[in-house]
Design a protein around this nucleic acid. Structure first.
Lengths: 228, 228
DNA sequence: AGAAATCGGTAGCTGAGGATACAGATTGAG
DNA sequence: CTCAATCTGTATCCTCAGCTACCGATTTCT
């Protein structure tokens, strides 16, 4: 078995293993027969459309989930930090193809295991299994929830509307002053707009006194005027 | 217990109950303590943002899932036919709020049950339960998959691109001649564009000999020129 | 330290597509 | 049967945001 002791804390934060004791975790993990792979900066971890190498859990580093359209438009779906899971949707749905591309933004380590191990007879007999199953369901539900959120941004047609919707969501979690996890380029990708147009609008909003920003630190000054 | 015999065929097609025998189905259903509600044409079944009334399974009729932005833009996420499920994502994720609005397009009957019934001690003891659980996981995964597909359309920026992507997906399932399940207005909502602009582009595509259509019947004439 | 790459703001131009309005066709209700 | 409502295509207008280009600032690499 792999020496995963050093990653135990990270794994325990993973949604698959929420509320599962240290002993049960070790037992389940060994049943999953995981492999750890390292990726250098900017390396592709999995490519949209390819058959899935397995379900992945980020151990260290940072990954980016993105989609590229046939005509070359790129959009960011989300970011993955240690303890986050990816590939579970494709693995468990009928299509076994990855719906998006995952790339290492910085050097990263990823734990993979085969989807079928989720329901292998060994795994089922682990003592924490029922908890593990309900966690799996919650994991999927949350993923669907994130996708829903993403759709919420995408269906807004105006630049101002997209920016406001995003900033208000971040503010709801972190208060009126916060640091966003994207640089301008990435944020533009995330909102599916062009960077210069977005910059233009951010400037306007600052002029109008709605927001104040410096780099990735943003402060919302007039929340009421941002709700459309 | 409710008399659900008349709906047994519909229920057996539902993803929750795939591969579950008639007897097991009856047992599980009774544990879920479902309620059947009728909706007249155009009535709202559940409103985005509201707490969830329960997990719903369509018995008869047709429902539409849509989202409305704060500024009034409306988009269609999908359509629900008998045996389809909705509300399961919100029910099983941490947020208990409905992420979208569901409306009855025609008079419809819906079966609801409380999410907690999924894991009640009664239900767990049903003989088909393990199958039921893996079905639940598959259900969630497929939902996430549908959302991914929706995102694929939304991130395409050009009108032509959106239309082609949609038509090609339909063609992949039904062959090069098919009837789409949307009228122009609904399709425009689905693709998140304005109806006149979409009509304009469809006309152009017909002129160019890419497609031929009459009402909702569409034939793709030059598939190779539609792949971007 | 110096060169190269990345990043963010700004400007000008342009065009795709949104909005509105209207007309003919079809459907539906009374 | 008639009137109203809905649906679809089309034309005009015009705005918003995409694109390209450029510049200064910052970071990174060697």
């Amino acid at each position: 078995m792999l020496d995963l002791l050093q990653y135990r804390e990270t794994l325990q934060k993973n949604t698959f293993f929420k509320g599962i004791s240290r002993e049960e975790l070790a037992e389940i993990i060994s049943c999953l027969e995981p492999q750890v792979t390292c990726y250098l900066k900017n390396k592709v971890v999995l490519q949209a459309g390819d058959p899935l190498p397995g379900i992945g859990i980020v151990l260290t580093g940072k990954l980016v989930i993105s989609k590229v359209t046939a005509s070359g438009d790129r959009t960011i779906i989300g970011q993955l930090y240690p303890s986050d899971t990816f590939g579970e949707v494709a693995a468990l749905s009928e299509s076994k193809q990855a719906p998006a591309t995952v790339t290492a933004e910085i050097a990263s380590e990823v734990l993979f295991f085969a989807p079928r191990k989720l329901t292998s007879s060994d795994t089922i007999q682990c003592s924490g299994y029922s908890k593990f199953v309900s966690n799996t369901i919650k994991l999927m539900a949350n993923k669907a929830f994130v996708l829903n959120k993403k759709i919420d941004y995408l269906i807004i047609k105006s630049m101002r509307g997209k920016i406001c919707a995003y900033l208000l969501d971040v503010a709801k979690k972190n208060g009126n002053t916060f640091t966003i996890p994207f640089n301008r380029n990435a944020l533009a990708d995330y909102l599916n707009v062009s960077r210069p147009s977005m910059s233009r609008e951010l400037s306007k909003m600052q002029e109008e006194g709605l927001i104040r920003y410096q780099g990735n630190e943003i402060e919302l000054l007039q929340i009421d005027k941002m709700e459309w």
